[in-house]
Structure formats: C-alpha cells, structure tokens
Design a protein around this nucleic acid. Structure first.
Length: 136
DNA sequence: CGTTTGACTACGC
DNA sequence: CGCGTAGCCAAAC
C-alpha cells in the first residue's frame, strides 16, 4: 500500500532526484524508480510493478516555481509522455530544445547522447538510493 | 462514495 | 517502427 505519509516522502524523493538531472540530459520514470530501494516506502512487490507509475504521479504533482527541471523526465521509449501536439508536450519539447536535447522525426531522443547516467555516488550514498539502471 | 483519469512499462504482432 | 493490451491503483472529480 501507499500510505499518505510515505506517499509524501516518496514524492519528495522523486523531486529531489529530478533536481539532480543536469541540463541537457534526460531521465525516465523507470530509471528514477530504479534508484529508490524497493522496500523503502511500501511493499516491495507493488513497488516493483508500480514504481514507474508512481513516479509519473509524483511528476504530475510537481510543485511549480521551485526550479524542478520536470522537462527532463520522459518515458522509457525516449518520448514525451504528454499527448503529441498537446500544449504540455510542446512546452516540454521547447524547454528541452532550449538545452540542446533534440527529438527525431519520430519524436524520440537518443539516450546514447542525452541519457543521464544517474546522480553522483556521493549523492546516492548520502540519500540511501540505489544506482539506476542504464538507459538504452 | 463510486467512477474516471492518468507525465508507465513490457510485450506481442 | 507503430499500435494495442494487460496489469494496476492513487488522485481527482
């Protein structure tokens, strides 16, 4: 289950990780989820199945005006997760283009070029997080 | 309080 | 590649 107190901590953790993504790089819901210990906030089994969705939920609730680079989080396919053509999708693409993250005609980024390798070891260590899975 | 919505992913064709 | 589907459930309405 995802008790409210834990949910808040989970969201805070996600936002904090997002803050670590440098300009010009992108991460994914799944990659961020992979950094959070499965048993830290809820049942490990559920975490394993649902963590990426919960990261998506956290992103939807991202506080505005706090400098969280929300635009740097996309889906595992390398695409923006808002409906193509929506105002939100256009805004996200615009912000990413501004930091030289470009999309192919098919609307995908090249993880080889702009994929984030994860936070520093020191950050992971001091925040009790796991090394992220790699983006391919 | 019941129903709908949603910033996911893996997998099959 | 693209498109559809199952699995899944907290938040929002």
């Amino acid at each position: 289950m995802f008790n409210p107190p834990n949910a808040k901590q989970f969201f805070e953790t996600v936002w904090d990780i997002v803050r670590q993504i440098p300009e010009g790089k992108v991460s994914t819901y799944g990659q961020i989820a992979s950094m959070i210990p499965p048993d830290k906030y809820t049942d490990p089994d559920q975490m394993k199945r649902l963590a990426p969705r919960w990261v998506g939920t956290a992103m939807r609730k991202t506080p505005k005006g706090q400098g969280i680079p929300w635009q740097r989080v996309i889906n595992s396919q390398g695409k923006i997760s808002f409906p193509a053509g929506s105002a939100q999708a256009e805004e996200q693409e615009r912000l990413l283009n501004m930091e030289d993250v470009m999309f192919t005609k098919a609307g995908k980024v090249d993880f080889e070029v702009v994929g984030w390798e994860g936070p520093s070891y020191e950050y992971l260590e001091s925040n009790d997080l796991l090394p992220p899975r790699e983006l391919t």
